[in-house]
Each structure stands twice: as C-alpha cells, then as structure tokens.
Design a protein around this nucleic acid. Structure first.
Length: 938
RNA sequence: GCUCGGAUGGUGGAAUUGGUAGACACGUUGGACUUAAAAUCCAAUGGACAGUAAUGUCCGUGCGGGUUCAAGUCCCGCUCCGAGUACCA
C-alpha cells in the first residue's frame, strides 16, 4: 500500500479537530507544561516557510511532553492590531477588521495544514473587544498605581495621596518625573482637584505628558525607540523627526533595576539578555552640581568618573538645555542662537550619521569648580544629548576621548590628572591609571578615588552617588485607528479613567482612516465618540457639554499593548469576569518554553516583562517573570534567483557567460527555477510582469539558462517566497515538519533550499514501508532480537537527549539511521515498530497516527506513553578500539570491554600491525583509555 | 567604535567531559529494474600522491602560535562574515 500522505494528513487533521484532541484542562492531577509561540501578526501575504520553523519546534516539544505525561498548554492566537491592516484600509477603504479577519482565516487554514497540536479553544485576538477589554483594564490599573522606591513595588496611588495629605512629598521615595516640586501637607490640602491631579500624574505608572517624541510624518504617528531602526521607521522605512507632543507614557524606568536583575533568574539566550542589558544601560556614577558664575543657577551633571573631577576644564550643555538661553552672555548670544537653531533642525538621523565632525559654541558663561573654585567655561555642543542623564557633561579632556577631541578642536586646556601617563596623543580611558594633581585624591586608584569624591560631594551637599539608566519611559500613544482605544475621557483637559465595569470601550466607526484635516488622529473623524458620565456609555459628539458629556481620547494604544500580557490570557481565555481567573493562573503560573524571533529582544520582550512585574506587584499574577525558558529560532532566508539583462538591450545572458559584460540583475520568481539553477524559459516568457520578455533573446549555456543565486531575507518583493502550501501539497506536512527541523540547528539562520527535501520524504516512505509487505499492512508479533532492540533503544536515548537540547535536526538523523538499520534487518515486529511510531509522532504526527490506528489502536497516538529507554539493551561486550600512533589513527582492533589497561596494551602491542607501524622502534609510552582509545607514542 | 554570534567536503550539516573528523541527507558518478521515463534499490564519493589491486603515505575543521600522549573542541594573537547597538558623559 502506497503512502498517500495527502489523504492521511487530511484525515487526522479532521480527527484532531473533531475530537478536540489537544484541548488542555485547567484542572488536572498531571504536572503542567506551558509551551508558547510568539503569536503572529496576520499579514496579507500569508505564511511563508520561515514562519512555521519555531511553531514546528514548539509543537514537537508540546507533543513530546504530552507523551511524557504532562498536562500541556499549547495555545495560539493573533496579534491582530497593527499598521499594515490600517495602511491597507487607507488605500482601499476596507475596514481593517474585515481584512484582518480574512488574513486570520488564511493563517488558520495554513496552520491547520501543518498539523499543529494547538488548543484552538483558547485562541486570542488582540483586536477582539473581549480581549482588549482587559488590555484597557490593565491600563487603568497602571494609571491608578505609583512605584514605591521604599518597598520596591507598585502600589495604589490612593496610598500616595493619603500620604501627601499627612506629610507632603518631601520624604516620599517614589519613581516620578525628574522635577517634582516639594510641598507640605498643608500646601497639598490647599490645592484644587486639578492641581492634585497634575501632581499625581508625575507619579502614576502611566501618565500624560509633553514629551519629545519620534514623529513619523509618513505614517502619521509617533513611534517608540524600538520601532525605529537606523533612524527610520521599522515599518516602511520612513523618516522620523523629533517633535513635542502630549502623549501617554509608561513609567517603565521605575522597573529598570528589576528588569535587569530578573534576567539572572531566567533561562534566555545570552545575546538576548545582553541586548536588554544594553538597552536598559545602567551606569554607576555621581551627580555633581556646578554653580554658574554670576547666576543663581546650578548645572547638574552625571558622570561615571567622579574621580576625574579635577581634570574638568570645560562643561558642555546639550543645545536644548534649559539653562542655555539664561546664561549666554550678550556677545555670544547670536552665535549660540544660531547654533541652537541649526541643531534643532537636524533630524535624529543627521545627528547620528554625522558622528565625526566636531561642533560647538562657547556661551560666554563660566561655572565654578565645586572643589577648586576655578572658573570653567561653559560650551554647548550637539554631542551632548538632551535625553540622556541631565543633558550636560563635565568635560574631562584628559580622560575622555570625545572631550579630548572637542578641547583640541577649540583650543581648550587639557590638564593632565594621571600619574606618569602621556596624553599628548589622546585621552587616557584606562581604569588602572593612578590619579595625580587632584587635591585630596592624588595618588589614589580609580576605585578609591571615586568613592572618596562621592563621599566629599555628599558631605558638602553638592552632589551624590547615582545610578543612571539609558532606558527611557515608553511612549504609549499612537495616532492611529487600528489599535486599542484608551478608556479615557477629558474633563477640562485632564484625563479621567472610565470605570472598569463599563469596559470595553470599543473602537468607533470612522469614515476615513486618515488624520483629520486639522491634524487630529483618525479617531477625530468619529462622530460618536464622547463619554456620557450619567449613562456611562459612548454617545454622539454633539452631546458634549463639558458638564456630563466629555470628549474621549483620540489616540490608540501601540502594537505592544496587547502582546504584553497575552500569555496570561491563554490560561483562561474565555473568562469575561477577570483578565485571567485565579485558579487558572495559579495552576499554569508561567510559560515553561517560549519560542520566537530575536527581533523582539528590546520591544515585546522588555515591555511584557515590565507589565508582568507590575501585575505581580499588584497581586494579579503569581510569578514575576512569565517565561522560564526562551529560545530564539533563527530566520529562514530566501534564496533569490537572478537573470542578467544586458544593459540597454533586451538580451538575457546565462550566468556562466556574463563574465565582464555590463548586466543588470533582475529578480525572478524562484518557482521558475529548478534545483540545478536552471530557469524554466517557457514559464518565464509567459510571465507578464515584463512585457518585452516574450521577445527577448536568451544567450544559453549548454542549452540552459542558468540563474544567479543570492541569499536574502524572504520577501514578496524579492520573488523568493516559498509557501508552505506547495510543500504540503507535493510532499505533505510531515515531510515539511521534518525537513524544517532537518535543515540545521533551530537557533541558526539558514537559507531555505528545497534541494534536500526528497531525502526526508524518502525517509518517511521507507518508514511507511517497514510496516508493509508487498502492498499490505504486515506487522507481526514475533519476539524482537537483541539487534533490533539495540536499534530501538539507542534511538530512544538519542531522541530524548536531542529534545532536551532542542537539537531537533539530529533526532531526524537518528530516525533515518533507525529506519535504515531496521530495513536492513528486515524487521516488521510490533514490539519494535510500535514504540518507534510513538517516538516519531511528535515530528511526523499524521503518519504516526495512521500507522498507530493500523496497529489496532482506537485512541490517538498522542495518548500513548513514551517508550522508556532501557540501558540493558545497549550493553556491549566488545569495543572497536582505534589504535593511534602519535595521535594518528592507523587501524582499529576489536577487543573485549572486560580487559583492563594492561591486557589491552598487551593485546595491541602483540598485534602484527602494531609491529609493522613501529618498524622496530620501541614505544616510549602507551596511553590506554579503556572503552575509548589506545595511543602509542614513539 | 562597542557587545554578541559564527567560519568543518561540491551543498545543508554531525562529532559526549579533548579520544576513529565528515554521522545523516542532498548532489554527483556507476550499476540493477524498465521499451522508455519516473519511482525504487545497490555501490562509490574530503583532497593529493603511489600501486594492476588489496592497500599505503601525506595534507586536511578560516589564519598564525601554544598546551597535550591526543585539539574542530582548551589557551593566546589575528582575518573574514553576520546580528544588535551607537556621540550614553
């Protein structure tokens, strides 16, 4: 009987779906295991072969764990809010909900076709009101919380208010905006409700503020730092400029230290941890106040090297620094203003690309050195960033190369404060140097000098030790339609939360998805978008009276809102009373294995850790880190194909004949090219996207047109996308699954190349054949012999180890070896083949189910217990020893494993081949490692 | 610039705590079956040299050193490629 994979696969996919085979229960005596994939954004292009790579790996793991007796949660859903659907809506007028739904259907069909064991009863869609209701709910919790630095956790904002009432804010240690003014209890009590709200917003974990944001005019929205790549938008590659706007922000900086510390407790890839560490960017140092001569003002600077304070010979402020206009002297005024203006015009990208040129202007003002009292000129320069530290630096040219270059360029003094170090060629950044010419720290090493300076600064009240982070608060507003609406209305310009019980606030209908003519976000087009505080419902804008009916927020939440907590929702997806029920979350707790791409390192994976910590602080979730282990699957790249068109002529030259000809490479669809890089000319000519190709002349080599190849990211525009549907149709899902694993280590990026797929497909056919003889199913009940048992058990052992190491490629090889060996042994015994089917079933579930049912089982193979490895079948009595001479293997000799060192040595030395090798020489030394090797030296 | 990966046959990739480099596939070549093709099966396949042959010798894991009886694996110094990040005070 032939292996009809299409029929078999359709049959079992139907069976799993009808029997809800992979439904996970929230109550079970079994140990839980939660396997999660990063859920996809359902794009219009559908799945390509790169998407399933991680899903296949996690599915194998999930199925394996089921066999091992775990209650496995393996859900899937869609991150279905996002820019592409909205861009498409702008172009075509179609509602994003409609295209999103269609795209989801395509994804679902494609996913089903690959035979994943997802529990679809728990599917989530971030754009579904029943889901984003809880995203809005979490937002409200954040709004109603502040971060206590005394207890190091988020707490109810009401407690803070009560404390203000009692004692003002002077003693309060809480995460807040930079400049919070002190007030007493009496002053607090005297404030109006509005004044209090403004103050509280400086402490809330989400707050509205005028911030400098990354504005992308083409997309008409602001972007978070992680959504910008090389100075342009990640989506679309559009320019980004800086702009001040009133925006919701998330006070993620409150969690900087805990986000850093938490990394030690989770098993995530080191590069991923490193990039989070760098993104958070912790640096230890000191804040120092420099008095400005002749002004009441102080310039506060952050430095990681307070030990070099006696090397300060100037200060540099960012052009945007608030003191610049105040302290600039009249004769420097015009130069400074001109510089500030030109700096503000430079986009972030210009400033980034222009790292080498040095520019700056003297303000005419001087600061006073806090220890020596010397006059220090104050400059401005755009190498100082307003957004980092305090936007001002104390410049130590002898100890910092940038300061050194700046000083050299403008002819500023470079005092040397290092002992016996020459600084005529450049700054000394070596931390092993000894400090000199530095008053009370002369002669000290860097470390001691730092602590002594901090001690002095604190004693004199002019500074203190400080830990600074690069991490900024995250902008949370987007000027887009297709995102979660905020549960917020505005009363006299101040944001008010809508009560939890009226959630969800669902997206309104709009005529157009573009910003309004007066520049408001798309929700500004909605006519029914006001909040009635009496009826507690959304009403028409016409009813706004600023007394009972108020305008609703026009921004929506960013893409990462919904993805920051979805892993918790899967645990109890249908719950309409809570974001996740207590008993469900206490059972499932956290994700045991999370698989996804490394591109989310500083976006999703940082924000979601932040929200989880917040939810933990508030007692909503039982664990502080939601994913114990994370694996990054490597990207599958496309292998683009090129034809070479002679410049200016309608002639295409086969690759081997191009030589020095001037040609223009043109992408051709990889579907038109076979495994030996030969172009299907007929099909190519029929292709309509270049009209003149029909008449083109082709210069062939050996009657073939050979294309050029290049590995690139898989993308529609490069005509190198390979669709899993085609593979499933031609070879089957089981072949696709195994082949994707066989390509190489999971974490490694690799080009997609179907060349080897026949090898995997052939393996499945041979596996099928083991169970059949001359067309019929033929498995017998004969007792297995030691050889067959050995094959089975070494495979069990290897596959167990491989799955533990996520080394799926090598287990595919082991299966091949097992099937090759059993075929050679002509084994068709149930006692061997039945366990083998279970072993293979996580990898190739359809064929395994089919064979399992043919073996007479009524239940799904997924309920079968995994075969137990028994070492007794692998015990060997003989070992083929490699016999080496001076480390080079010359021959092998079979010897009993019972022999001790001396007996092995004797046997080897007596061997005639040894005598021949030695050729009369006497061995200096004989190394015998029983069970391993023999090495003869001499 | 900094941080982190990586480099093994014609190709994808294997290789326990250092212990027979190239498993398993693809491709290629030869053969069987067939009218033929596909499918399937069998054999060979890192390179060079010697030999009719069995076989033998040398070279081989990016480069140069080192440690060791023994190095793809450990140490030192480079080269190239990839990813992330970037005036971070």
């Amino acid at each position: 009987m032939k292996y009809y994979f299409n029929e078999i696969e359709a049959k079992w996919q139907k069976f799993w779906s009808e029997n809800q085979t992979f439904r996970a229960e929230n109550e079970s005596d079994k140990e839980k295991f939660y396997v999660l994939d990063m859920f996809p954004y359902p794009s219009g292009a559908g799945l390509h072969v790169g998407h399933p790579l991680g899903y296949i790996a996690s599915d194998i793991y999930a199925r394996y764990k089921r066999h091992k007796g775990f209650n496995v949660l393996h859900p899937q859903g869609y991150d279905s809010f996002g820019l592409p659907a909205e861009q498409y809506a702008i172009q075509t007028g179609q509602h994003p909900a409609k295209t999103t739904k269609e795209n989801i259907e395509t994804y679902r069909r494609q996913l089903d076709q690959i035979g994943f064991s997802f529990d679809w009863s728990r599917e989530v869609r971030t754009s579904d009101p029943s889901y984003y209701k809880w995203t809005q709910w979490i937002f409200i919790q954040l709004f109603n919380s502040y971060y206590s630095l005394e207890e190091n956790k988020a707490k109810d904002i009401q407690e803070l208010e009560e404390r203000f009432e009692r004692e003002g804010n002077r003693e309060v240690k809480a995460a807040s905006d930079e400049k919070v003014e002190f007030f007493s209890a009496e002053e607090w009590k005297g404030y109006s409700r509005e004044q209090k709200d403004v103050i509280l917003s400086q402490y809330r974990l989400t707050y509205l503020s005028d911030t400098e944001v990354n504005w992308c005019p083409e997309l008409g929205t602001v972007l978070a730092n992680d959504e910008i790549v090389n100075g342009v938008s990640e989506r679309g590659g559009f320019p980004v400029v800086r702009k001040k706007m009133k925006q919701w922000s998330m006070r993620i900086t409150a969690y900087a230290q805990r986000l850093l510390d938490g990394l030690d407790s989770i098993d995530w890839p080191q590069p991923l941890k490193d990039s989070q560490t760098n993104w958070i960017g912790r640096s230890e140092g000191a804040m120092v106040d420099f008095k400005v001569n002749g002004h009441e003002a102080f310039i506060e600077v952050f430095t990681t090297r307070p030990d070099t304070i006696f090397g300060v010979s100037f200060m540099t402020l960012a052009p945007e620094h608030e003191l610049v206009s105040r302290i600039t002297t009249s004769d420097q005024k015009s130069a400074v203003e001109e510089y500030v203006l030109s700096a503000s015009k430079k986009s972030e990208r210009d400033r980034m690309s222009d790292v080498k040129s040095i520019s700056g202007v003297f303000t005419g003002a001087y600061a006073v050195h806090p220890f020596s009292g010397e006059q220090i000129p104050i400059w401005i320069g755009d190498y100082v960033l307003a957004s980092y530290g305090t936007g001002a630096v104390m410049a130590v040219p002898c100890g910092d190369q940038r300061d050194y270059d700046f000083a050299k360029y403008f002819g500023i003094d470079i005092p040397n404060i290092f002992k016996d170090i020459d600084i005529s060629e450049g700054a000394c950044e070596d931390k092993n140097a000894k400090i000199a010419n530095s008053d009370f720290i002369s002669g000290l090493g860097v470390k001691e000098a730092i602590s002594k300076v901090i001690f002095e600064l604190e004693k004199r009240g002019i500074g203190q030790g400080k830990i600074n982070y690069r991490l900024r608060d995250a902008v949370f507003s987007r000027q887009r339609y297709w995102g979660e609406p905020f549960p917020v209305y505005y009363k006299e310009g101040l944001p008010q939360m809508i009560d939890e019980k009226y959630l969800p606030i669902t997206l309104p209908e709009v005529e157009k998805y573009l910003p309004t003519s007066d520049g408001k976000p798309p929700l500004g087009n909605a006519t029914v978008w006001a909040w009635d505080t009496r009826k507690n419902t959304i009403v028409s804008n016409e009813l706004i009276d600023e007394e009972f009916v108020f305008p609703l927020e026009l921004n929506t939440m960013p893409g990462w809102a919904g993805s920051s907590w979805y892993f918790n929702r899967y645990m109890d997806a249908g719950n309409d009373k809570e974001f996740c029920g207590k008993s469900a979350i206490n059972y499932w707790k956290d994700v045991d294995l999370y698989i996804g791409g490394s591109e989310h390192a500083t976006g999703h994976l940082l924000y979601s850790r932040f929200w989880q910590k917040f939810l933990f602080d508030k007692g909503f979730v039982p664990v502080e880190e939601y994913a114990k282990k994370l694996i990054n699957q490597g990207m599958i790249l496309g292998t683009s194909a090129f034809v070479y068109r002679k410049e200016g002529e309608n002639i295409f030259i086969s690759k081997g004949l191009v030589k020095d000809e001037k040609v223009q490479p043109i992408h051709v669809d990889v579907a038109l090219v076979n495994a030996s890089n030969e172009l299907d000319l007929e099909a190519f000519k029929k292709n309509t996207f270049h009209k003149d190709i029909k008449d083109a002349h082709f210069i062939l080599e050996e009657r073939k047109y050979i294309v050029g190849r290049e590995v690139e990211k898989m993308s529609k525009s490069k005509y190198n996308v390979v669709n899993p549907d085609d593979i499933c149709r031609d070879y089957g899902a089981d072949t696709l699954r195994m082949y994707e694993m066989f390509l190489g280590p999971l974490e490694q990026a690799k080009p997609w190349n179907t060349a080897g797929i026949t090898g995997v497909h052939g393996f499945l056919k041979r596996f099928w054949k083991l169970f059949h003889a001359s067309g019929d199913f033929a498995v017998n009940d004969e007792a297995p012999n030691p050889e067959e048992l050995k094959v089975l058990h070494k495979t069990i052992k290897k596959v167990d180890e491989d799955i533990a190491n996520f080394s799926f490629n090598t287990s595919v090889s082991s299966f091949m070896i097992a099937v090759n060996e059993l075929t050679a042994l002509k084994c068709s015994k149930r006692s061997i083949l039945e366990p083998l089917a279970v072993l293979i079933s996580p990898y190739a579930p359809h064929i395994a189910e089919e064979l399992w049912s043919k073996l007479g089982h009524k239940e799904s193979i997924s309920t079968a217990t995994y075969p137990e490895f028994e070492s007794k079948y692998l015990i060997e009595s003989m070992k083929t020893y490699p016999i080496s001479f001076n480390g080079k293997m010359r021959f092998t000799k079979e010897l009993s494993l019972d022999l001790d060192k001396a007996a092995i040595e004797k046997a080897v030395l007596e061997d005639e081949r040894t005598l021949k090798q030695l050729d009369g020489r006497i061995p200096k030394k004989v190394i015998v490692v029983p069970g391993k090797i023999v090495n003869i030296v001499g």
